Computed example of a mutant assay.
Amino acid sequence: MSKATVEQTKMGSEAIAFCIARTLIERDASLKAPMRANLRKMWELLEERGDDAAADMVDTLIKALNDPAFFKP
């Protein structure tokens, strides 16, 4: 794949993850803490494996979960 295609795939994956996370948490706010914990564990595993690109994507989602602006209507 070309570099542009890889970047588009990455941005699309991040967007889908954000939409799913936001929808789930808006429906049940108690999901936020376990989702954050699972993402943190996933980030640690990716870091150990040396998959920096995937770890960066997960880190972005963790930061979004901590940002109150992410949940504004």
Rank of each mutant, 00 (worst) to 15 (best):
D28M: 02
A64T: 11
D51R: 12
L45V: 08
M35E: 00
D51I: 11
K41D: 13
A69N: 12
R40M: 10
Q8C: 00
M42T: 14
K3G: 07
M1I: 08
R22K: 15
A54Y: 07
A21R: 02
A17D: 02
I16G: 01
A33L: 08
S13C: 07
I20W: 09
I20F: 10
C19T: 13
P68T: 15
L46Y: 14
K32P: 03
L24M: 12
T9L: 05
S30D: 06
L65H: 13
S2E: 07
M1V: 09
V58A: 03
R22F: 06
M11W: 02
R40Y: 05
E14K: 11
V58C: 05
A33H: 04
A33R: 07
L61M: 09
S2A: 05
V6A: 10
D67Y: 07
C19M: 11
A69M: 12
L24Y: 04
A15H: 04
D67I: 12
A33S: 08
M35C: 06
D59R: 08
I16H: 01
S2I: 08
M42Q: 14
G50R: 10
G50N: 10
A4G: 04
V58P: 01
G12Y: 00
V6L: 09
C19E: 12
S30R: 13
L46H: 02
A17E: 03
L61H: 06
K41C: 01
T9A: 08
T60S: 10
L61D: 05
K3I: 11
I62F: 00
R27F: 06
L46T: 10
D28L: 04
K10N: 02
A37D: 11
L65S: 08
G12L: 04
R36N: 04
A64L: 14
S2F: 12
I25W: 04
D52L: 12
L24I: 12
P68C: 14
E7W: 06
N66K: 15
K72C: 08
D59V: 00
C19D: 13
K3S: 12
I25V: 15
D59N: 06
K3R: 12
I20Q: 08
A21Y: 06
L31V: 07
R27V: 04
D52G: 08
E48G: 08
A17C: 05
L31H: 03
P68A: 15
A29V: 13
T23W: 07
E26W: 05
T9Y: 05
D67K: 09
D67C: 12
R27G: 10
L46I: 11
D59H: 03
M57G: 06
V58Y: 00
E48V: 02
S30G: 04
P73A: 08
K41H: 04
N38Y: 02
